[in-house]
Amino acid sequence: MIKSLFNLLVFPGFLFLVMSGLTFEWLDRKFLARFQRRVGPPWYQPLADLIKLFSKEDLLPKNANDFLAALLPLVSLASVLTAGLYVPIAGYKAFSFEGDLIVIIFLMSVPTLAYYLAGIISLGIYSVLGGGRSLLQFFSYEVPLLIALSGPAILGGSWSVSTIMEAQVNLGPFILFQPLGFILAVIGLIGKLKRDPFDIPKAKSEVVGGSLTEFSGPTLGFWNLVMDIQAVIGIFLLIDLYFGWTKMSHPSLAIIIFIIECLILVLILSGTSAIFARLRIDQLAGLGWRILVPLALLQLGLIILMGN
């Protein structure tokens, strides 16, 4: 009972995920700033932003649905936090069952749908446009991401993240067998997180703030938190699925290696957002269905051949 509570609230639950989400945001902003010849924010900036937002007033347009607007970020937060419980961190797994990978992927999609709804209910022109774009984007990146993530599952012979990690102890890290799948998964993750170059739903110069244009105060704070935690869980999941050999090392060594892997992935994410221009939505759909899906299918075919 106490262990479950500890898992839910402290590690790897609420407190840990919030802290690592804020750390991710800081690292990302700092890396991006260094790429852009800027100094970047101090370490406490994301937390300070959050505290500031929580102390502010919540304002929405007159006829907007306040109840749903407040509920949606909470639902998203709950689903990403739940997803976080099933993702092993540095080899430590809190909860696990056969098929938890599918549950994680499903729970990670909830914020995207909530984001779309938030745009529709907040009744701003830019929000509606941004919401529509986020849904279009969802259909472009989600399919290649799913096909890519099923690669480790097939190779590991299980749909449970921890079993896939155990399989890598014997076989070696799966990135060696499917580098293409890893790249596709990173691209899918960037799309999921709506990061540059796939920040189409919230492109400042086109749709102002996207779905969240009208939001302010605690609601916006929760949304920012959801995005950060989503990013962190995405990074943890990719490391577990593709670099899962931390388990065989000494526990403290495993933690250090895990942190280094996280930093490398954050660097990849920040680097891509620094060097690429934003795509148009039709270009993204073309990229997703004409290039990424065939490549993902090719990778999947290779894995199945390899399994035999």
Partner: peptide, 16 residues
């Protein structure tokens, strides 16, 4: 222009 097409790095560097 770079900023509007999402290339903020170029924006920072040109303005520098």
């Amino acid at each position: 222009l770079a900023k509007h097409i999402g290339l903020e790095t170029i924006f920072m560097h040109t303005w520098h």
